[in-house]
């Protein structure tokens, strides 16, 4: 009986990868997310923009349960994130089950967060070996392919401290891809980079989008959003203010807050 109750939400029929329903998040007394409703289709590239403190990074972190949501529901690929539902009751997932959910969700951080005590190649090999139990040889072969794909086959033996910011972020993307995720989350991936290094990271992301990866990208790069994004979400004050086709939202924002924000960044 519990099997039926526990059946995943039928999102495949609607082609949905992420579904957020009235998601709320508080930090102490501060309400950071005030009821977010969003849907990300399979293969969609959704760009999330907004002023700092708007809750966009927090929402991204909720998607792979780095933050626990306080109200609402959040599904990834049909599965409730962080919880199991039986009847009306929610049960917190065990640590191992949460880890298993995260295997399929890649994440790229603003500050790269590469493992500094490992070479670039070891950074990419580590998770497949530990989490999926892949052999060292298999992990190495694919890590080498991924390093080539992000244009760093000559940098595999370097430690992160020996790489530029742009190179580090490309390694971080390769590291996330090594787990063969269904969904990639990008948390301001170019915000910590020198201006001349932004392009090389966006190029890798553009290729990834072209290959059909489902992506949620928190960014300040409006050019990238316009060119690569399938949808654009503008968040402010913990709510989704406006969303739509990037070209239209950027050219003709409907909401006063969107207009004010875009007039400052464009």
């Amino acid at each position: 009986m519990s099997e039926i109750m526990n059946a995943p939400l039928d999102m495949a029929a609607q082609d949905l990868m992420v579904k957020a329903e009235q998601v709320c998040k508080n930090f102490g007394h501060v309400q950071v997310l005030k009821g977010i409703d969003l849907e990300v289709r399979q293969g969609e590239v959704m760009c999330v923009v907004g002023p700092s403190g708007s809750g966009k990074s927090t929402f991204l972190r909720c998607i792979n349960h780095l933050e626990k949501i306080d109200a609402g529901r959040l599904w990834v690929d049909g599965h409730l994130v962080g919880y199991r539902q039986r009847g009306d009751k929610l049960y917190e997932l065990r640590e191992k089950e949460v880890a298993a959910q995260r295997r399929d969700i890649g994440m790229v951080f603003q500050r790269f967060n590469l493992f500094p005590h490992m070479t670039a190649l070891q950074n990419v090999m580590e998770a497949p070996m530990l989490v999926k139990g892949e052999s060292k040889d298999a992990a190495r072969v694919r890590a080498e392919q991924l390093m080539e794909r992000v244009g760093l086959s000559d940098r595999m033996g370097n430690y992160p401290s020996q790489l530029s910011g742009g190179q580090q972020q490309r390694v971080a993307i390769a590291r996330a891809l090594a787990m063969q995720p269904k969904l990639m989350l990008f948390d301001e991936p170019t915000s910590a980079l020198d201006p001349e290094l932004v392009g090389e990271v966006l190029d890798v992301m553009r290729d990834l989008a072209r290959e059909g990866m489902t992506m949620v990208v928190v960014t300040h790069e409006m050019g990238f959003a316009r060119e690569v994004g399938d949808s654009l979400v503008f968040m402010d004050g913990g709510v989704v203010v406006e969303q739509g086709v990037p070209r239209e939202v950027l050219a003709n924002p409907q909401h006063a807050r969107t207009q004010a924000f875009l007039s400052k960044v464009l």
Binding site: N64, L66, E95, K96, A99, A100, R102, R103, I105, G106, M107, F109, N113, L114, F115, E126, A127, L130, V131, A172, R175, A176, M179
Partner: peptide, 9 residues
């Protein structure tokens, strides 16, 4: 965070 996001326990 990076390790958690990769699915490490």
């Amino acid at each position: 965070e990076a390790a958690s996001a990769l699915g490490l326990t």
